[in-house]
Write a protein that binds this DNA or RNA. Sequence first.
DNA 1: GGCTAACCGAGACGGTACGTCCTGTCTTGCA
DNA 2: TGCAAGACAGGACGTACCGTCTCGGTTAGCC
Lengths: 190, 190, 190, 190
Amino acid sequence: MAILVAAFELLGEVGYAGLTIEGIATRAGCGKQTIYRWWPSKAHVLLEVLTVKADLYVTNADHGSYADDLRAFLGDTFRLGRQQRVVDILRVLMAEAQINEEFGELFRVAFLQRRRDALQVVLDRARARGDLPPRPTPSTVMDIVFGTLWYRLLATRQEMGDDLVEDLVATLTQAAQPPTDQEIDLGDPQ
Amino acid sequence: MAILVAAFELLGEVGYAGLTIEGIATRAGCGKQTIYRWWPSKAHVLLEVLTVKADLYVTNADHGSYADDLRAFLGDTFRLGRQQRVVDILRVLMAEAQINEEFGELFRVAFLQRRRDALQVVLDRARARGDLPPRPTPSTVMDIVFGTLWYRLLATRQEMGDDLVEDLVATLTQAAQPPTDQEIDLGDPQ
Amino acid sequence: MAILVAAFELLGEVGYAGLTIEGIATRAGCGKQTIYRWWPSKAHVLLEVLTVKADLYVTNADHGSYADDLRAFLGDTFRLGRQQRVVDILRVLMAEAQINEEFGELFRVAFLQRRRDALQVVLDRARARGDLPPRPTPSTVMDIVFGTLWYRLLATRQEMGDDLVEDLVATLTQAAQPPTDQEIDLGDPQ
Amino acid sequence: MAILVAAFELLGEVGYAGLTIEGIATRAGCGKQTIYRWWPSKAHVLLEVLTVKADLYVTNADHGSYADDLRAFLGDTFRLGRQQRVVDILRVLMAEAQINEEFGELFRVAFLQRRRDALQVVLDRARARGDLPPRPTPSTVMDIVFGTLWYRLLATRQEMGDDLVEDLVATLTQAAQPPTDQEIDLGDPQ
DNA sequence: GGCTAACCGAGACGGTACGTCCTGTCTTGCA
DNA sequence: TGCAAGACAGGACGTACCGTCTCGGTTAGCC
């Protein structure tokens, strides 16, 4: 759809604050009404861009152990977080979700919750398998996994690398292998 | 300052989207120019409201052990996260930081970094004391602590209770005590 | 035709400014295209409403004298001017004729000229009969007759009564009978 | 005022139907709000253009007799009717007055009534002088004078010449001099 | 009696203008 | 002199209609 493409391109060119329905319509060569007919705000358009654009599918296939499942899940998830265009959209959608209550509700239900559901599968399988550690609780695992992801997207904008994946897997599975040397940082790099 | 009070009240009444410089000026009984003289945007006004309003000071006094220091830090921090008015401001400031690059820079430097600096003190002391576990690395500890906080503020809007503090402290200090029964939840409560 | 009825009703309900092709179509239960197929604008629709609705026929039968012919013509004509619904349509059509050049041309040819033609018959007969006064000239008679009619419709919105008919007949036939007492007004009643 | 000039010029260039507040604002180099701040519609702007532009003052000085007063009044009035730009404005204002009730009221009070007041002075003087004929009544004189004027403006768009002035003066003063030859027309020239 | 073609309601579409709201700047006039 | 009040150019909002266009579901005519 020309509208989604236009919205996506303009986001890159003028930023979210400079993104307007009028601008999208002009770029897409359509009337404003056509956009309003299908989406109530620019954020809704971008949410659809995200859905169409990004391969949001994260495998939660069985890798035999909780640690391996988690490693795969985090790897897949963080990989999305390295695509700048996807990140740009995620950031502004989370922002809009804070400002526009109606969109916030949609974003939580249609996006955030689905991510949680995917991780829930991994946790359920671990519990069934019996290798889910007592600490942290599943709920806290979710907070830690998605919290770390979003905090890096929104606040520090640090790259999310494999070392972080390993550190999280180790922490969440209580695997007390000492970290490799280069993983140790002595302060706050932000 | 009447302007800060007006901005704070209006945020509660009309929300961030409905908050305008004109509205603040009218409520405060001043001219728009007076506001522009001191702050370049409504977000900057709210950042100052936050600074003035909330007791953002978090003790990082020495409690004798890494676990106790962390427990105190998390308790103080999460306590702020239970004040609705403070949370409202935090959420919209983080949102604005995603949308307005110039404000984002200020917010990271003047607010987010200060929170990290406070936690850094705790981590430094733990390392000096020798009870900092090898996993997770200090950087990851920051991501987990602040990530969890912000994720709950922005995404799930779950209350941040003492059970979460304990779970995080246990996880971060690798203290393998099993959680108490009521801390275990078997699914996703969001 | 349902379309004409719908247009007529809506004119009464929402006025000419609020009258739209879409509204007519909705009310008539037809598609917009169907209206556009037959009439190029809402004014054209109303012109047809007028033609269908109002009995626009004005007798110009021979009453034996110029004065009596004129009296009959004015009586018939002014009678139309007392039907509010007809007046409403006449007013907006004359208005549209000022604004839309193409419609104006049609209105003059298809409506205004026909009225003039009817009066022309009266004047021709008077001339043939020899009782057409030298003043005012036939052209001026038309201006006075239709001018007075339209001026009252458009500008003063005064009722057009029999006293006006008599006054005009007397003036145009130079019949110098003094007016009856109640016809004399000492000022401007508008 | 740049806005009045812009409105006036655009009326000539694109016509009343094509005249928009946006267009006026663009041409005048101002914001739309500035126009809305002072006038509620494009018709109101044009009414002010008319007031500013046209020398609407019509002398009603005493010329010694009713006939001469009337001749002077008609001459002055019809002279305005020969200025195309003034006529264009008058036509669309009368049109708008039919369509927009609120503007119609203003137009009648602030424009049409003032013209009537001017003629009323002439009639009052004639009555005082004793040379006001019994027919037609003052009210009908107004209808005839302004009716003829407006009818020619709106309907026939015929030029208003001195012969018409003479014909009306003769008719209204019952001066039964036969018209000169060239004043006689044998039909309807429209 | 079944197939096809014309018709027509419904309404999406690219547009244009509406009238409102707010921006950030500038000017005015009061205290 | 400093500030409230608010006018100003500008620009986006979301809405209403415009006149054009496609889409399907009838309906009627023809084989």
